[in-house]
Design a protein around this nucleic acid. Sequence first.
DNA 1: ATCCAGGGCA
DNA 2: TGCCCTGGAT
Length: 318
Amino acid sequence: MLQQTQVNTVIPYFERWMKRFPNLKKLANASPETVMKYWEGLGYYRRCRNLHKTSQWIQQHGWPKDRSQMQFLPGIGSYTSAAIGSIAFQWSSPALDGNVIRFLSRLHATNLTNAKQKLAMEAWLQPALQSLGPSRLTQALMEFGSLVCKKSKPHCGSCPLKMHCQAFRLGQIDLFPQPKKKSVPKVAHRGLLIVYSGDRLLLQKPRAVGLLGGVYCFPTASLSPKDRTGVSYAHRYSHLIEHVYPIVIRVNNTAPSSPYRWVNLKKLSQLPLGNRDKLMLKHMHHLKPKEELSRSLQSQISKDIFKHPMVIIPVQKE
DNA sequence: ATCCAGGGCA
DNA sequence: TGCCCTGGAT
Ligand code: SF4
């Protein structure tokens, strides 16, 4: 959970999670959908799928014996194996997360970008690791980086290390760490289909991979430029800005193709959804049914989603 | 509104 | 290198 996510964001998720899955067996034996429900909203849903798989692997084969074994587990790389290893098992591997890298690069007024530089820093930490213990040192570094040596407005005035801190002495705190180059996110336009049949809503079942893989989604449709009209809002992902155009329709009672299913409105809250669709659910009561659908949209709904004859119920004219 | 931080993986 | 998501600071 703490990969790419700050502690304060994780805490409520962690507490709910540990209440529902208090031990390895409970987690490993739960269904993917149940597990995902407890991750819903945290983002990067592959982390959840990986964690579930990892729990099942450990249940079968036992706990990994060292860092390199641990890195064979899905979702556990160099950083996470170091963090778990040092904190939980007292292995001599300091975990250099973003907070720690920031602190150390300021302390030495040097960039810690490539693997060689990080390895040198791990060696430099070894004496402290031995004298303080891996678990305590790793947690102290992480806490110090996130609470004192913060990315913006670090507490240098009260910092016990300011006399040893090269960046502080040189007045170069803003130069470290070197900012990452930003890649420009792509822009997409999608129709988000809010399809009712009576008191049921059409949802796409969780996909195994890719964007929002593992959570339920509203069905979507591609939009030609002339279909990009009416209410819309932008949803931001790491690499993508999606302009979402909600399209409300009603159809007759008919079975959708296999990637989709009807969900009773009352049971909606039991299913895991991404934030885009949670927000949609919250606000869709204000939306009016679409009066006219373009041929392209009609075709996508009948051919791609239902794949058999069905009826789009026209809006009542007043 | 805009920018940024934060690991794993193909 | 691009793909994965969101919350927080400004
Ligand atoms: S003096 Fe400032 S920059 Fe240096 S370690 Fe302390 S908080 Fe970080």
